[in-house]
Nucleic acid binder design. Structure first.
Lengths: 162, 162
DNA sequence: TTCAATCCTACCAACGGGGTCGGAGATGAA
DNA sequence: TTCATCTCCGACCCCGTTGGTAGGATTGAA
């Protein structure tokens, strides 16, 4: 499994906020939890990650809630996933650097005096994942989830990316 | 973490067998375990997966061991990883079908009567991973791990894929 | 002042990952 | 024939992480 439910729930939460993006009032977690059938207490911890990353803003107190810091078009999913999962590494020995340029720390490398046989593969895979995440905006997911409500004529073309 | 140590160890094992690809005698697990500093008993279980997938052949008894079923050039890493990990799914609700065409079974989809907001994203990510795996052959990894022994002049160009 | 929200910390059960152990069947060499 | 190696196979086990709960403190609108 590449991602945990943090990513699943967090992305759904972001999409939900993206839908309300035009609204003036903030959206409470309670509403989102009910509409997505997710545990509220768990969502609280997840949204904290998104807030710390500056992706959402909050207002406390009655009638408070959350809203996006930027417009959905300006939010790419690599920011979201990185905020939620911490990093996207193919293997333990791969540690993402915070600035995005993934640095490779492979403990096996120094061991036998020979190169890490899997390094090339993991680099490519990680590159492939990050590429797809960067290419996908929150706005796309919002539009896609809308379209899914009414059975679309040709949906498959959206799945493959240019 | 995208992959478990099954993938890490299994790929290293395959690379090791790929190095011995020309040899007439089979390579015993014990030799591989020692040269890669991996637990032998665990390797036994891992290589069983590779054998079941038809990627390696074995001969039992004294002086037995394992060898590749095909030449390293003919082995793409998607076969190897799928044999080791069972599937490469971004999320629980994604179930790969055995024939390669990944079928999507998302439990949330039927729930609220609305489309799965994350479906588009997970499809793209999975596609990105599978693409990279298919593009990489075992022969490449063998060559790469050789080159790493003697510090290469320009190694970075190998990491980015066309 | 009351109620609804965000916030924050501690706690916990279950599961899967990452092994270990012991033995049982081949099989070539001494 | 016996022995040293191998592959094979199932049971077992430790432990960290995941996924989630409990309970409260703080904030702010009505």
């Amino acid at each position: 499994m590449i991602f945990t439910t943090k990513a699943e729930y967090g992305v759904r939460l972001m999409v939900e906020l993206g839908r309300q993006s035009g609204a003036r009032t903030a959206t409470s977690l309670k509403v989102i939890a009910e509409s997505e059938a997710l545990p509220l207490a768990y969502l609280e911890r997840i949204v904290a990650l998104l807030k710390k990353a500056g992706l959402v803003e909050s207002t406390r107190g009655a009638h408070g809630g959350y809203r996006l810091s930027r417009s959905p078009e300006e939010i790419t999913m690599d920011d979201v996933i990185l905020a939620l999962e911490g990093s996207v590494a193919p293997m333990n020995c791969f540690v993402d650097d915070t600035d995005g340029s993934s640095r490779v720390l492979c403990s096996h490398e120094a061991d036998a005096g020979q190169g890490c046989a899997t390094k090339l593969l993991w680099m490519r895979v990680q590159g492939g994942v990050m590429e797809k995440l960067q290419q996908t905006t929150l706005a796309e997911l919002v539009a896609f989830s809308h379209r899914e409500n009414t059975p679309p004529p040709t949906e498959r073309e959206n799945l493959t990316h240019a």
